[in-house]
Design a binder for these strands. Structure first.
Length: 851
DNA sequence: GAGCACTGC
């Protein structure tokens, strides 16, 4: 190195040092501004409601109700006028879809009898809407299925037939109702005798052998006797006392007082999720304006549990008891019991790193080991060290408790029994080569030989399910009317909501329902009346290869824990049977004990950025329950450096601090920031929103593939998928977010609605990170330049996925010189020239998502 | 011409 160049090097390093210092200073200033903003917001909320006693609050509620009654007629006229001005049939349809979606949300725990009432109710609403009245306020009332905000003793115009019945149900209520129904099930000699002759109809059969029983702790007889009693209407108080957790109330409170961290081991149906926060509230843990927090892995769970607890405590949802999930914060300054999703708490850490407003934090369903729950373990463990007053409860199903206890410095384990019926487990004598075919045979075999009761089959994906549906339809048609009716229903996340809802329709008398489901039925959906489970033992799993940076979605054998969870689905209503399409030997020796936790399987870009923003610099030594692979962390850090979120010291830059505000992959966050420079923030926000609804925009049913694909071609943009996505969104927005439009174009309304929600959230976050929303100033090129910031390479792909082959999803063509413009710290011009000579892979520059 | 388990922010 020559002297002059050496000098130049050192001087440039000096200025780099200055830039770094300046950036860090700006970052801290930005962080201070954010904090101030948050504090002002909190202050405003507090001022608005003030510190009121309980009586005052009740009084105010009543006054509010009176006020509203006064202005209600006025509002009605206003809303009617507005409605007439902008009369669109779409609106009515949209309302219908909204209701359907909301119903779907809650239907999981809803009874068949109720569904009828629901449908009636929906019709009434639509009728009303069509009369051009109350449309607006109905929308508000119906949105969350909340009881109306009325004073005591008052009745609203369209109060639900039975307010209590309308509320989402907790596990416990479900249990109670299940008991009633189980009494009606027909298990009799008459059935099996009559069906013996059908066995001859089946040309093939699978030999199953019973190996063991998944133990239940309730005998059927005992429960059936009890069900007579249960049929009588129980008061809330009686119901609460009948829960398995109830006898443990005092010892549990005692244990929580004595120990800072407690592992609560309890099976489903023990009532722990709904009762423990109430016990703690009653025991005075919410004094001094402190809250009890409880995290759930799923949105629906957070909402429905909160609703149940509000009902039990006889308060309005959102006041003393509330929930907070993305897009929806249903809490107030009076909230003392707050249910939330684990991801929400993770985000909350950014504005309240010490959880100062909580006295107790409950991490529920810890055994599910979601990414957010795993990160929370490390964060809350850290906090308990400097906040001795914070109580921590880790609630989990059996088996994992010991592990949690060990992680949390040998915290004591508190065991609560659950309630479950026994499930007989059957294995095949020999391995099955084609498990889809084996499923079909097993279903027919059960249908022909076993007493009535619905069947749940676990398959791996949409295609498999569609094949299986076809095969079953064909076979049952051949057999004809000799067998009882078999209702075949598919369910997977990408299936439109109205079709999903069909699995909740009651099975007609004398018929049998068979539900073909993905893993969605393992935890997310609970279907009534399932007596038989068929488990081929496979699932699709996402895996991230940090060496290639590629994600893969492949069919893998499930774990023992997962197999037992599936079997348990048969024992909710009555004693059940689970048919495993693998051998007992395979179960014992080939299946893993537990599914690899998510944190070890996925790209950690966003997680690492959030942790950095929380001031955790040494991620390699962060206290993980199960640490992610070293390479994954390194790759995430490298990627953040490439995006300019970290400087070469590994410190968070100002850009990084801003990026951390977005609940997206860091690549997308960078793209959003870059839109400022290229004056296309509106467009980029749309694209980011569309990208984050992850490729479930198109609905592609097997029988209408051609139609669906033609419809898709209409949106094609020659410059790439990102712009195509923007086209789709804009066209949809132009139709005023029409449902009809979605149907016509084979676009999933649910996904589009979600994109709209995400878009709104991103837009407000843009304001938060001080970026103006600009549109229409720029052309395709600047939009594509901004996209380039997403990932400074030659083609921009949003995802790299290995399924049957390597796929780039969402591809946009870019020019190599833009890389230099966007990421000068990462690319040198020489490097680019060299590599442009190299032969590109075939897919480069081609659009993979829209052909 | 190919394909996309499930969540969550």
């Amino acid at each position: 190195m020559s002297k002059s160049s050496k000098r130049r090097y050192s001087s440039s390093s000096d200025s780099a040092e200055e830039t770094r210092k300046k950036d860090l200073l700006e970052r801290d200033e930005f962080a201070t501004r954010l904090k101030k903003r948050d504090e002002e917001k909190v202050k405003k909320v507090a001022e608005a409601s003030g510190k009121r006693s309980y009586e005052e609050a009740a009084k105010r509620l009543k006054m509010e109700a009176e006020d509203r009654d006064k202005i209600l007629p006025k509002l009605r006229i206003q809303s009617r006028r507005k409605y007439l001005e902008k009369r669109k049939d779409d609106k009515v349809v949209e309302l219908e879809a909204d209701i359907a979606d909301d119903e779907y949300l809650f239907d999981e725990r809803i009874l068949t009898k109720r569904e009828k009432e629901d449908r009636e109710h929906k019709k009434t609403i639509l009728k009303l809407a069509k009369e051009h009245e109350k449309a607006r306020e109905l929308e508000n009332v119906q949105r969350y299925h909340m009881p109306q905000d009325l004073g005591k003793g008052e009745k609203g115009d369209y109060v639900e037939v039975d307010d209590i019945e309308k509320l989402p149900h907790s596990e416990q209520k479900k249990w109670e109702q299940d008991q009633i129904r189980s009494a009606f099930f027909k298990f009799g000699a008459k059935d099996s005798q009559a069906q013996e002759e059908y066995e001859l109809l089946l040309d093939e059969q699978i030999d199953f052998i019973q190996a063991l029983q998944l133990e239940g702790n309730k005998e059927k007889k005992e429960e059936q006797e009890k069900s007579e009693y249960r049929k009588m209407r129980m008061t809330i108080e009686e119901t609460k006392k009948s829960l398995p957790v109830y006898p443990f109330r005092e010892p549990l409170i005692e244990a929580i007082r004595n120990y800072q961290i407690l592992i609560v081991e309890g099976e489903t149906g023990s009532g722990k999720t709904t009762q423990i926060p109430q016990y703690l509230h009653e025991a005075g843990f919410t004094a001094d304006d402190k809250k009890i927090g409880c995290t759930q892995p799923r949105r629906v769970a957070a909402m429905s549990v909160a609703a149940r607890v509000a009902q039990e405590m006889n308060v309005k949802l959102g006041n003393e008891v509330g929930y907070s999930i993305r897009f929806e914060d249903c809490t107030s300054d009076r909230t003392v019991i707050k249910y939330m999703t684990d991801g929400t708490l993770h985000r909350e850490f950014l504005s309240e790193p010490d959880l100062a407003s909580y006295s107790v934090m409950i991490i529920d369903e810890a055994h599910e080991r979601t990414l957010h729950t795993d990160i929370l373990f490390g964060l809350v463990k850290d906090i308990t060290r400097f906040r001795p007053d914070l109580k921590l409860l880790i609630s989990s199903a059996t088996l994992d408790a010991e592990k949690f206890s060990k992680f949390f410095d040998d915290a004591p384990i508190f065991r609560i029994p659950g309630r479950r019926f026994p499930v007989d487990i059957y294995y095949t004598k020999a391995p099955e080569a084609d498990y889809v075919d084996a499923c079909v045979v097993s279903v027919l075999q059960i249908h022909a030989t076993q007493p009535l009761g619905d069947i749940l089959v676990f398959l791996t994906g949409q295609e498999e399910i569609e094949t299986c549906v076809e095969m079953l339809q064909e076979r049952t048609k051949k057999i004809g009317k000799k067998l009882k009716e078999l209702i075949i229903l598919p369910v997977y996340a990408n299936l439109p909501s109205d079709m999903q809802a069909k699995i909740f329709d009651p099975t007609p008398e004398g018929a049998r329902k068979v539900v073909l489901a993905t893993n969605i039925a393992e935890t997310s959906l609970t279907i009534d009346n399932i007596i038989y489970v068929i488990d081929p033992g496979f699932a699709k799993q996402n895996n991230f290869n940090s060496k290639t940076g590629m994600e893969s979605l492949m069919v893998v054998p499930i774990s023992k824990a997962s197999a037992n969870q599936r079997a348990g689905r048969a024992g909710r209503v009555a004693p059940g049977k689970c048919f495993r399409l693998y051998t007992a030997w395979a179960y014992k020796y080939e299946l893993e004990e537990n599914t690899t936790p998510e944190i070890q399987r996925i790209n950690l870009g966003n997680a690492v950025l959030t942790l950095k923003a929380l001031g955790i610099n040494d991620l390699i030594h962060f206290d993980f329950l199960d640490p992610p692979p070293h390479e994954t962390l390194v790759l995430a850090l490298e990627q953040l450096y490439a995006l300019g979120a970290l400087n070469h010291h590994g410190e968070l830059t100002k850009a990084g601090r801003r990026m951390a505000e977005f609940p997206t992959d860091p690549m997308l966050a960078k793209m959003l920031l870059a839109s400022e420079k290229y004056k296309c923030s509106e467009e980029i926000v749309t694209i980011a929103a569309m990208l984050s609804v992850n490729s479930s925009i198109f609905y592609r049913p097997k029988d209408k593939i051609i139609h669906a694909d033609t419809a898709r071609k209409n949106f094609f943009h020659p410059k790439g998928d990102h712009l195509t996505l923007m086209n789709i969104y804009n066209q949809w927005a132009e139709t005023e977010h029409s449902v009809q439009w979605c149907y016509e174009n084979f676009v999933q309304y649910r996904s589009m609605k979600r994109a709209r929600d995400v878009r709104e959230q991103l837009a407000s976050l843009m304001d938060r990170v001080e970026i103006e929303m600009i549109s229409g100033v720029s052309d395709d090129t600047s939009i594509r330049k901004a996209i380039t910031a997403e990932l400074p390479r030659w083609v921009i792909y949003h995802e790299l996925v290995f399924t049957s082959k390597e796929f780039m999803r969402q591809v946009t063509e870019i020019e190599s010189k833009w890389l230099l413009e966007v990421a000068p710290h990462y690319y040198k011009s020489k490097e680019l020239e060299d590599s442009t000579n190299k032969k590109m892979p075939k897919t480069v520059g081609k659009s993979s998502d829209t052909k």
